[in-house]
Amino acid sequence: MSSSDSGATPVRSGLTERRNRRSVGLGFFASELAVLFRRRRTWAMLLALAAVPILIAVAVRISSSGSSGRGPAFIDSITQNGLFVGVAGLTIAIPLFLPLTVGVVSGDSIAGEANTATLRYLLVSPVGRIRLLVVKYLAAAVFCLAATLTLSIAGILIGIALFPVGPVTLLSGDTVSIGDSLVRSLLIALYATVSLLGLSAIGLFISTLTDAPVGAMAATVVLSIVAQVLDSLSQTEWLHPWLFSHYWLNFADLLRQPIEWSSFGQNALLQLGYVFVFGALAYGRFSSKDILS
């Protein structure tokens, strides 16, 4: 703690040229991503997701007694073509594992900062509350993409390692080349990413309600389960098209020939609606919330 100012002079001169205009926030977004992906928790979650297709592939390989007769038919077809493992992994992970990890990241977004007391320092920096919300949301969206890509790529790699690989049979019975099938795998990962955007927005909103990140995470995950339960009840049929989980498993439409884009579009519109509504709610809550943590 030297009080000598000898070292300070050049810094001060550099500092006095303060920007007149606030930067767009790419720097802070990069920093947010760095914080997200420097956490061991994030890597643990991605590893757990990668383990899903790996476990499926290994289990199928070990048992490999052919058709089990349960579960989606194409879990069986991974024995014929390893490129299906990624899709099979996504199918298994979409109802629970992916919402779980997305709930952790989005539920932690604001509440986690409040919990580590870093929220007040960010706000005093000043980060700007709306900017913080936007950056937090975008980081959660990047995590969604990372999660689904991790699953897909891990699945494809383990599939190549354990099973024969060749041209892929689509649901329509048509056969496409390996290159085409990889493009479709990427599209499916994108579809799953888009599917999770609404849940991320809900998590962000819940995260602004509390200083306890665990509570926000749990609430987000529970909501995703509730939505899926409601989606499976015929009594709530009128509600189904409005549930954010309604189109989650419709990525199968990308495995048809030709690709059925309508579910992609409907899903994207629905998720966009959720992002709008819950983004606005998060803004309403957070823009004037007293930060007392």
Partner: peptide
């Protein structure tokens, strides 16, 4: 990180 949060701070 905290410095990057300040949009006015020169990078």
């Amino acid at each position: 990180r905290l410095d990057s949060a300040d949009g006015f701070a020169p990078r």
